[in-house]
């Protein structure tokens, strides 16, 4: 062994210190055994606080109301794909704008888009995606977009027997299930119900005495929650 090599080699005490520091660092970074994965933060402070960090895994969250639902849906998808999860959008209204999703930050390569023809097929599709009861489905977040349905879609509430089944499966698969509709469908099977309301457009004048749609505001309100006290609300301004 050369003298130079001896000069740079750390002492036994230094080596022990390095090893101890490495152990502390790795322990801090590595997920602990049995720990749950983090929820999908929506990026809306009040809402995330009310949801204990974001959309919870293994639970059904329902979003209802007249405005802001698609924007909130895309936020949830973007948050999940940022965490490296695969997501699925079961779209009974065929309403997704991929360009808007991309601008919102959704990684489209991690997104499965299933355009079902009827509302009841959406529940079947979610059931398929959540797997056949044999453990993890592989999808971190599944969104059931049931807004603005016509025809048979209005009879979705009659499919009551499907909701407990879906809740059970999403718990088993540790998958967050987000149901987006105009009115409550899952009822008490939803862990949290968020209501998007009081939406209105904000217009600004442009040269030539004309107007431009600048943004839309919507108030997201925790209507009911089994995670904490309901009633929290956040005003969201959505820019064009």
């Amino acid at each position: 062994m050369s003298n130079r090599a001896l000069a740079v080699a750390p002492s036994a005490a230094q080596t022990a210190e390095i090893v101890a520091e490495l152990r502390r660092s790795i322990a801090a970074q590595a997920p602990r055994v049995g720990s749950r994965k983090p929820p999908f933060a929506t990026g809306l402070v009040t809402l995330d606080q009310a949801l204990h960090g974001g959309l919870p895994r293994g639970k059904l969250v329902e979003v209802i109301g007249p405005t802001g639902k698609m924007s909130l849906t895309l936020r949830a998808l973007a948050s999940a794909t940022r965490q490296g999860e695969l997501v699925a959008l079961v779209d009974a209204a065929d309403a997704l704008d991929p360009e808007a999703a991309q601008r919102q930050g959704v990684d489209l390569s991690r997104c499965l888009w299933a355009r079902v023809k009827e509302g009841k097929d959406a529940l079947k599709a979610a059931d398929l995606l959540l797997g056949s009861g044999s453990g993890a489905s592989g999808f971190g977040l599944i969104v059931l977009y049931l807004s603005a349905l016509t025809g048979d879609g209005r009879d979705l509430a009659r499919l009551d027997r499907m909701w407990p089944r879906l809740v059970q499966r999403c718990e088993k698969a540790d998958t967050a299930l987000l149901v987006v509709a105009d009115r409550p469908l899952a009822g008490s099977f939803a862990t949290v119900t968020l209501s998007c309301e009081d939406g209105h457009g904000i217009w600004e004048p442009v040269p030539g005495s004309r107007l431009r749609l600048c943004s839309q505001t919507t108030r997201i309100h925790v209507q009911r929650s089994r995670l904490g006290t309901p009633g929290e609300a956040e005003l969201l301004t959505l820019r064009r």
Partner: peptide
Amino acid sequence: PLPNLLAAHVLR
């Protein structure tokens, strides 16, 4: 942070 963008429900 995630952007606050207005999204459209496309009618197809």
